[in-house]
């Protein structure tokens, strides 16, 4: 089997596992982690697709998309964490 195809299938499996965990796990921190793993799975599908056809140069457009995607994902995660910390402080009665 083609190596890139194998990793796109791994990416699909990661996305499915993370989707399940995102809805079944209830702690918000776990949900953020699940969202990140789902993102990694989707990125893996994109990059696998970029070099699915052996012998040609990989398609640089998905590479650029995933590169920006990783950076945006971590900034969104960081913002989600700030929201969580704010929620916890409100729960403790602080401002």
């Amino acid at each position: 089997m083609n190596m890139a195809l194998w990793f796109t299938l791994v990416g699909a499996a990661l996305a499915a596992i993370a989707l399940h965990a995102f809805f079944s796990r209830r702690h918000p921190l776990r949900r953020l982690i699940a969202l990140n793993i789902m993102g990694s799975g989707i990125f893996l599908v994109l990059i696998g697709l970029a070099r699915l056809y052996p012998g040609t140069l990989p398609d640089p457009v998905p590479h650029a998309m995933v590169l920006t995607g990783i950076v945006v994902a971590v900034s969104a995660t960081a913002f989600g964490l700030v929201l969580l910390r704010r929620l916890a402080r409100l729960g403790r009665g602080e401002t």
């Binding site: 040609t56 398609d59 457009v61």
Partner: peptide, 25 residues
């Protein structure tokens, strides 16, 4: 079933791609 469905649909879409797959390279 939703998670399994996502995996199955993605797999079918990947296996059904034309050869060579579309590329902007």
């Amino acid at each position: 079933l939703c998670a399994l469905g996502l995996f199955t649909l993605l797999t079918l879409a990947l296996l059904g791609l034309p050869s060579p797959p579309p590329s902007l390279a």
